[in-house]
Lab assay of single mutants.
Amino acid sequence: PDDLEKRARELLKRGKNPDEIREYLRNAGYDQSQAEEALKRAL
């Protein structure tokens, strides 16, 4: 898994919901489609 996916998994483990994770990834400078893909793979 790429770093983005790892980060998404990490956040899920900490109890973040998908919307929070999307926002976090966007704020971290990733584009929307990258964030969506990583989140899908992590779920």
Rank of each mutant, 00 (worst) to 15 (best):
D3H: 10
A35N: 01
G15T: 02
L4I: 12
K13A: 14
A8G: 01
L11W: 09
K16P: 01
Q32P: 14
G29A: 02
Q34F: 07
R26A: 10
Y30D: 01
E37W: 06
A8K: 00
A28T: 04
R41S: 07
E36M: 05
E37T: 08
D2V: 11
A35G: 03
R26N: 05
D3P: 08
A35C: 10
Q34N: 06
P18Y: 09
Y30S: 03
L12K: 03
D2A: 12
R22E: 04
L39R: 00
Y24G: 03
A8N: 00
L25Y: 04
I21R: 00
S33D: 14
D31H: 07
K13V: 07
R7S: 08
Q34I: 11
G29P: 01
L43R: 05
R22T: 07
A35H: 02
G29V: 01
E10M: 07
D19R: 07
A8L: 15
R26D: 02
D3C: 09
P18F: 10
A38S: 04
L39V: 11
R14L: 15
K16Y: 15
S33P: 08
E20C: 06
I21A: 03
R7P: 02
L12D: 00
L4F: 05
K6V: 11
A28I: 10
Y30K: 02
D19G: 06
G15A: 02
P18S: 06
A28S: 08
N17F: 07
R14I: 13
L39C: 03
E5T: 14
L43E: 04
E5V: 15
Q34C: 10
E5H: 12
A35F: 10
R41M: 08
R22H: 05
D2W: 10
L12E: 01
L11E: 03
K40N: 12
K40E: 12
L25C: 03
K16N: 07
P1Y: 13
L4M: 08
N27R: 13
K13T: 07
E36N: 07
R14Q: 15
E23R: 08
G29M: 02
A8F: 05
D3F: 13
L12V: 07
E37H: 07
A42T: 04
R41E: 04
Q34M: 13
K40Q: 14
L43D: 03
R22P: 01
L39T: 03
A28Y: 07
R22S: 04
N17R: 11
K16M: 15
A35T: 13
E10W: 07
R7D: 06
L11Y: 05
L25A: 02
E23V: 06
L39S: 01
E36I: 05
G29H: 02
A42H: 02
L39M: 05
R7Q: 14
L25W: 05
Q34L: 13
L11S: 01
P18Q: 08
E5F: 15
Y24F: 13
A38P: 01
L25M: 10
R22M: 15
E10Y: 05
R9V: 08
D19S: 09
E10P: 00
E5I: 15
L12F: 05
L11T: 00
R9Y: 07
A38R: 01
D3N: 10
K13E: 09
K6A: 14
R14V: 10
R22Y: 14
E23S: 06
D19F: 06
P1V: 14
A35P: 01
S33A: 14
L12H: 05
R9E: 04
Y30C: 09
A42P: 01
D2M: 12
I21L: 03
G15R: 02
I21S: 00
L11N: 01
A38T: 06
D31T: 15
L25R: 00
E20I: 03
R41Y: 05
K6D: 10
E23W: 06
Q34R: 11
Y24A: 11
N17W: 05
K40A: 13
A28M: 15
G29L: 02
K16F: 15
S33G: 13
R14F: 09
K13D: 09
L25D: 00
I21C: 01
E37K: 07
L4E: 02
K6F: 13
E37R: 08
S33F: 14
A28E: 13
D31G: 10
Q32F: 12
G29E: 01
Y30I: 08
R22L: 15
A38L: 08
D2G: 11
R22G: 03
R7I: 15
R41N: 08
A38D: 01
D3K: 07
Y30E: 02
D19L: 06
G29R: 02
A42S: 03
R22V: 15
L43Y: 07
S33V: 14
L11D: 02
K13R: 14
Q34K: 10
N17K: 12
S33I: 14
G15E: 01
A35W: 07
R14N: 13
N17G: 10
E10C: 13
E23A: 09
E23L: 06
K40D: 09
S33T: 14
K6Y: 12
L39I: 14
P1H: 12
R41P: 01
L12Q: 02
K16C: 12
P1C: 13
E23G: 04
K40M: 14
L39N: 00
E23M: 07
A28P: 01
A28F: 08
A28K: 08
K40R: 14
Y24E: 10
D2N: 12
E10I: 07
G15M: 03
Q34W: 08
K40L: 13
K6I: 11
D3W: 14
R9F: 06
D31R: 04
E5L: 15
R14A: 15
R7F: 15
G15F: 04
R14D: 12
E5Q: 10
Y24L: 14
P1F: 13
E5M: 15
Y24N: 04
L4D: 02
R9W: 07
K16G: 05
L11M: 14
P18G: 05
E36L: 05
A42R: 01
E20N: 03
D3A: 12
N17I: 05
I21D: 00
L25Q: 00
R22D: 01
D2K: 09
D19I: 06
